[in-house]
């Protein structure tokens, strides 16, 4: 490839990247706590729920872990802990303004590969516990996956067609001095957002953790096992929001402030939107959603891809 559009920074900066992701997780959990407290009419003495991440982390760090009878312990823990690692690997390809940790030529595919890994991880967490409720939850997630994954993949393709590159930095650069991809490919952007919420097992896509099956995949998790699982979900949501910035929201483009601040501002905005959305929507039941995913979302993104391709050829 010709000259890179972003600078690859020294590996030591990876610490900063992980720290930013961590901060996003805390921020997201704090907002969720605040919204939950408000929804439940919690007394003001409870601090408005903003400190929820702190209390929850302390609680889970004090709580003992559990091991169910004949559980597949290793795969079970691997599932929970793997979510955080996956999220970290996702943000590695997201450029922060002009800097990136991992300037991969096929960065978009990398992200895609990571989000598919979540299938295995969530399912393993459900399967490993050897508990009926968890098992049902694990399979529910796979069923959801069948519905959201293909639309998500084709949604990722739309910006790639327009940017003529799978490199995330180049996709961001292609939006310079032109309309953001999110604006002229709204269907792809919406479906992408849906996909992020889905692979984070979040909000309407949380039947795998549903109240009807005693929190399903999470039914047997306690202590630090639950902590890393929950952090992993928030981290995935944050990573998905961050990845949307170079793909659909113009990367570091924005007036006055330097590029990296704009990336953060856009990431936080999208993340908070996802958090806010959680309580507002009923669950999309996996059996119903499968039909929706295949018969509505999939054709819609295919048409979106077609439109983008035609526009690109017509332009030039």
């Amino acid at each position: 490839m010709s000259e890179p559009s972003v600078t690859t920074v020294a590996p030591a900066w990876a610490l900063a990247a992980v720290a930013i992701l961590g901060a996003l997780v805390v921020l997201a959990a704090a907002l969720d706590g605040a919204l939950t407290a408000r929804g439940n009419d919690a007394a003001s003495g409870a601090g408005g729920g903003v400190a929820t991440p702190l209390w929850e982390a302390a609680r889970l760090m004090r709580q003992r872990r559990r091991r169910t009878v004949e559980a597949d312990g290793m795969l079970w823990r691997l599932g929970g802990a793997g979510l955080v690692v996956t999220a970290v690997l996702m943000v590695a390809v997201v450029p922060l303004g002009e800097w990136t940790i991992f300037d991969l030529d096929v960065g978009v595919m990398w992200f895609n590969a990571m989000d598919v890994m979540v299938w295995a991880l969530v399912w393993l967490t459900g399967w490993g516990a050897n508990s009926a409720h968890s098992l049902v939850g694990g399979y529910r997630f796979l069923a959801h996956g069948l519905g959201y994954e293909l639309p998500l993949m084709f949604a990722l393709v739309a910006p790639v067609i327009a940017a003529e590159s799978l490199n995330v930095g180049r996709v961001a650069a292609a939006q310079e001095n032109s309309l953001w991809f999110g604006l002229w490919m709204p269907v792809a952007f919406l479906v992408y957002c849906l996909g992020v919420v889905a692979f984070s097992v979040w909000g309407p896509f949380a039947p795998a953790l549903g109240a009807d099956i005693a929190s399903g995949v999470g039914a047997e998790l306690s202590g630090v096992d639950r902590l890393v699982f929950e952090v992993g979900r928030y981290a995935l949501l944050a990573a998905g929001s961050a990845f949307a910035v170079p793909m659909f929201l113009g990367g570091g483009a924005g007036p006055l402030l330097p590029g990296w601040t704009w990336v953060l501002i856009k990431t936080v905005s999208l993340l908070l939107l996802f958090i806010w959305l959680r309580r507002r929507l009923p669950a999309l039941r996996p059996d119903k959603f499968m039909e929706l995913g295949w018969m509505v979302l999939l054709p819609a993104v295919l048409v979106q891809d077609l439109v983008v391709a035609v526009v690109m050829v017509w332009r030039g």
Binding site: A14, M61, Q63, V224
Partner: peptide, 30 residues
């Protein structure tokens, strides 16, 4: 990045061994 993530998860588990009321997982029925 991967190393930091793994180290982070690992150290949380180690820390939990100290802060939890009991470091041994409790054997339970599902």
């Amino acid at each position: 990045m991967a190393a930091i993530a793994l180290a982070g998860v690992g150290s949380i588990y180690l820390l939990h061994g100290i802060t939890a009321i009991n470091a041994d997982p409790l054997a339970v029925l599902p």
